[in-house]
Design a protein around this nucleic acid. Structure first.
Lengths: 125, 125
DNA sequence: ATAGGTGTACTATCTGTTATAGTACACTTG
DNA sequence: CAAGTGTACTATAACAGATAGTACACCTAT
């Protein structure tokens, strides 16, 4: 369910956060679904429970899941909507990169092509 | 000439590298131009000389500048071309983000609009 | 030749973040 | 009650980033 890269610069707890959000965004994790327990996921990934606790706490702070002590941790009703809103900040990232590409003289078409490719439209130009 | 953010997660030496590359990409720094000396820039930015040395060494490793010991450090002839090539890797970043946006249900038009905005085309949709 | 600027190299230290280890406790369900 | 859940806390290790300080080699202008 999760893929951890231990050598990159992205902290493990942040990878968990990102990947959980993606699972929600793509509909694989839906409202009411139970997240893996810190202990279970700790064993599966060979990661310290505290690290996972940190990730889950942040997801909770963002309103993507709620904890039911003694029971488990579950995806909230508005998780999907919240993730969608959060994704809009990514548009600024794209805009920022596009500015650089523009300054570097990369053709606009190349940048647009990259977006289309990400959306699955394999554009032959 | 340089703007340092001491609170973000991006290391200072990396900010120097990025900003120098942008200055080259945008043509503000051209072939033969002299870069600020480690000592001078150290004072201007209140940054340790070693940190700047680290940034400059990396720029040199990438072939964007050469050092003339006792003289200064200068932008190379192919700096602009090299930066341009390097920028193409940024297209993959855009593609990656676009995939996420697609999974999150953000309309393709929004993503394309962000690219156009970065290129200075203020698209009213 | 000298002074002052340049790049370069090296060691040591401080700091914050990340991750781990271990323990303890409260809660819910079966 | 037992087993699984979340939660809290302290302590430690490891690493990257940044700083401090020193020393040396090189070039240029005076």
């Amino acid at each position: 369910m999760f893929q951890i890269d231990r050598f990159g610069r992205v902290p493990i707890y942040e990878q968990i956060i990102d990947q959980t959000q993606r699972l929600i965004a793509s509909g694989i994790l839906k409202e009411g679904d139970q997240l893996p327990s810190v202990r279970a996921l700790s064993q599966e990934l060979s990661v310290n429970p505290n690290t996972l606790q940190k990730a889950y706490s942040e997801l909770e702070r963002r309103g993507l899941c709620v904890s039911a002590p003694g029971n488990g941790r579950f995806v909230t009703a508005d998780a999907s909507k919240l993730v969608g809103e959060g994704c809009k900040g990514r548009l600024d990232e794209i805009r920022s990169i596009a500015e650089e590409l523009c300054a570097a003289g990369i053709p606009l078409e190349d940048a647009l092509g990259a977006v289309n490719a990400g959306y699955g439209k394999e554009t032959r130009q």
